[in-house]
């Protein structure tokens, strides 16, 4: 027992500390990149990706490596893996309605379909996942259920982040009652509200 403790001490002093691959998953426009940016900015001073009101802004996996997250006396290294939003349909005309040209819209739609495929493939490469949901939207939809079901099937630890808690329409209870078996932490990635509680829950998730 004493020997095991000694080895653990040596490992913690000289060994390679594990970097946790933290995936950001969720439907389109839930605020995954906003949350990843908030975390990255809090601990590295730099943002990770561009955010936009136009759906499918994130169309490629974006990674910020070796983000040292500290909370109280706890500290851990994370690779933040921001993934494109999962969707079951993509219609380029939706982008035209957001002001893009037909050519840009078609290109964006094509890239977005690839992004969804990549996001699903990357489920194999994450250690734990933040499922980011828009708290103002109905959480009981098949995309959310499919994402969480796949993570459960792979035994990947999940924390549900109810983002956009600053919106009047947000219904945190609705998310909690839809996924009663998971911890749900309400935040506003935009304003930074509740991020301290979020970091507590994150350390609880990866302990």
């Amino acid at each position: 027992m004493a020997l095991k403790g000694f080895f653990n001490l040596l490992l913690s002093l000289f060994g390679k500390r594990k970097t946790i691959k933290l995936g950001f998953y969720g439907p389109v426009n839930a605020g995954k990149t906003s949350l990843a940016n908030r975390i990255s900015k809090d601990f590295t001073g730099e943002e990770l990706g561009v955010v936009s009101k136009i759906p499918h802004e994130t169309r490629e996996i974006q990674i910020k490596e070796k983000v040292k997250i500290k909370k109280g006396n706890k500290q851990m290294d994370f690779n933040l893996i921001d993934t494109p939003g999962i969707a079951t349909k993509i219609d380029y005309t939706d982008f035209i309605r957001h002001g893009l040209s037909q050519k840009e819209s078609k290109e964006r739609a094509k890239e977005a379909t690839q992004g969804v495929i990549e996001a699903i493939k990357w489920l194999e490469n994450v250690d734990c996942v933040l499922v980011v949901l828009d708290a103002a939207e109905n959480p009981y939809n098949q995309v959310n259920i499919t994402i969480i079901g796949n993570l459960a099937a792979r035994k990947i630890p999940v924390l549900i982040v109810a983002n956009k808690m600053d919106l009047k329409k947000s219904k945190i209870r609705s998310i909690e009652s839809t996924f009663p078996q998971y911890n749900v932490v309400p935040v506003s990635a935009l304003t930074g509200k509740n991020m301290e509680l979020f970091y507590d829950e994150l350390f609880r998730l990866v302990k």
Partner: peptide
């Protein structure tokens, strides 16, 4: 469908999206 099959359905759907096929709606 199993949750892995649902994910596969989404992947295959994305692969096949074109001018005529915009994707699917699904609910269980």
């Amino acid at each position: 469908l199993k949750s892995e099959e649902e994910a596969m359905l989404i992947q295959r759907t994305m692969e096949q999206i074109d001018r005529n096929f915009k994707g699917i709606e699904i609910a269980t």
